[in-house]
């Protein structure tokens, strides 16, 4: 008798989910059809499938990362989302997610509009360049602080929380919810309003709808 063993194509990660991933997962509906744009190593896709029973697919530009996702059994296509989002039909997804990825788009406003076309809701997590420490850094040293070290990810745009709110408004999207984050965890001191979050949040997760 040959030995039987269970196959886990998506091994359960031992570490806790990345902060913005945890917040995003709470914003995604149970069983939702979700698209993670710039899904990287697929950690959020696994989390959404596990925690929210979501039908989650991803798009990833980096060939090695996309292949690793497919090898782990995730539905990921290696493609340039800046071009490929246009191929999706309107309303194809419940949720379209940019987890720390929108700042790498050449034309983020256009990408947001495409996302709002193909998804009922759009979730975006960004780093806040107007955090008080960044402001102090610029004020005292006179040079821009280094962007957060997000795994070699190249940020083409530096936004404050309020910058992004303006960008979303210009893309004709409504901010349904905004979750400030600091130290990789939800919440930030004094961040009761967007204006205060702009001082005290290191990151923020936005839930948008058209």
């Amino acid at each position: 008798m040959s030995q039987l063993e269970l196959v886990h194509p998506v091994p359960a990660p031992q570490s806790a989910p990345r902060g913005d991933h945890g917040v995003i997962a709470l914003m995604v509906g149970e069983g939702a059809k979700a698209l993670d744009v710039g899904c990287g190593d697929g950690a959020l896709l696994s989390l959404l499938a596990r925690e929210r029973r979501a039908r989650a697919s991803g798009v990833e530009l980096d060939r090695a990362k996309a292949h690793a996702c497919v090898a782990r059994g995730l539905a990921v296509m290696q493609a340039d989302a800046e071009i490929e989002l246009a191929a999706f039909p309107a309303g194809a997804f419940d949720t379209v997610i940019f987890s720390r990825s929108l700042q790498g788009f050449r034309r983020p406003a256009a990408a947001l509009r495409e996302a709002a076309r193909i998804g009922a809701q759009v979730i975006v997590s960004i780093g806040n360049s107007a955090h008080w420490r960044s402001r102090l850094h610029l004020l005292t040293k006179g040079v821009m602080p280094a962007p957060p070290g997000w795994g070699g990810f190249e940020q083409l745009h530096r936004w404050s929380v309020r910058d992004f709110a303006t960008l979303a408004r210009e893309a004709r999207l409504k901010v349904e919810r905004a979750a400030p984050m600091s130290h990789g965890r939800p919440g930030a001191p004094f961040a009761k309003s967007l204006w205060r979050a702009n001082w005290f949040a290191e990151e923020a997760v936005f839930l948008l709808s058209s």
């Binding site: 040959s2 039987l4 063993e5 194509p9 998506v10 059994g73």
Partner: peptide
């Protein structure tokens, strides 16, 4: 590796999670 991942994930979704032992 990519093909194996695709096939194994589909097999798990199909309820074919039990793998025959390697001979």
């Amino acid at each position: 590796a990519a093909l194996t991942g695709f096939v194994d994930a589909a097999a798990a979704a199909r309820g074919l999670a039990l793998q025959g032992g390697r001979s």
